[in-house]
């Protein structure tokens, strides 16, 4: 009996020691990097007011956070129909018109990411039970659909801003 217990223990250790970089680690063709930053207003050497983007402030309710996602085609192949989706964190209110991405068509979801559309087409059911246009604060997801293919080695960024609730 003792031996079996030992065997079991051994196999458990074996299981645990399977590296996380196992069979599930199939490398994709695109690398995705996401950062969160805050903008600080400051004055440059010419005395002009500029915005310095850095993680050098504290984050409080009411502060604006910039979420930036960098995508890079790290493969030797051309990627088509590249769509980057970002769920808006629940403690963040999306700031209207802040989603940016060069060469990308931006659409939003108000139903938890099931469907996406342009702001003017988004509708929600209000408290009175009637449909009305959705407010940017009600967006749940943002999607950037890149126009055209992403050639090998090409890198780009998409971003949006939100306010901490």
């Amino acid at each position: 009996m003792k031996r079996i217990t030992l065997m079991t223990l051994c196999s458990m250790v074996l299981l645990l020691s399977v590296p996380v970089t196992g069979f599930a680690q199939e490398k994709g063709h695109i690398e995705l990097k996401s950062i969160a930053e805050i903008e600080l207003e400051t004055t440059d050497d010419k005395g002009e007011r500029v915005w310095v983007r850095s993680p050098a402030e504290k984050a409080f309710p009411g502060d604006e956070i910039i979420f930036t996602t960098t995508y890079t085609n790290i493969s030797e192949e051309r990627a088509d129909n590249v769509a980057i989706t970002n769920p808006i964190p629940e403690q963040i209110t999306y700031r209207a018109d802040s989603a940016e991405g060069q060469g990308a068509v931006v659409t939003f979801s108000v139903d938890g990411g099931r469907t996406f559309d342009k702001p003017e087409n988004l509708r929600v059911t209000g408290e009175d039970g009637r449909e009305r246009p959705a407010r940017p604060s009600e967006y749940t997801h943002i999607r950037w659909l890149l126009q055209g293919a992403l050639p090998p080695g090409r890198e780009g960024t998409v971003s949006f801003r939100g306010i901490i609730k």
Binding site: A24, H29, L32
Partner: peptide
């Protein structure tokens, strides 16, 4: 964030983001 894409007409598995960059 996550990215979906295709190679030609073949849809690929999506890639999720990480703070330093993920391609798995």
């Amino acid at each position: 964030a996550s990215v979906s894409y295709s190679l030609g007409a073949v849809s690929q598995r999506p890639v999720e983001s990480s703070p330093s960059g993920n391609s798995v």
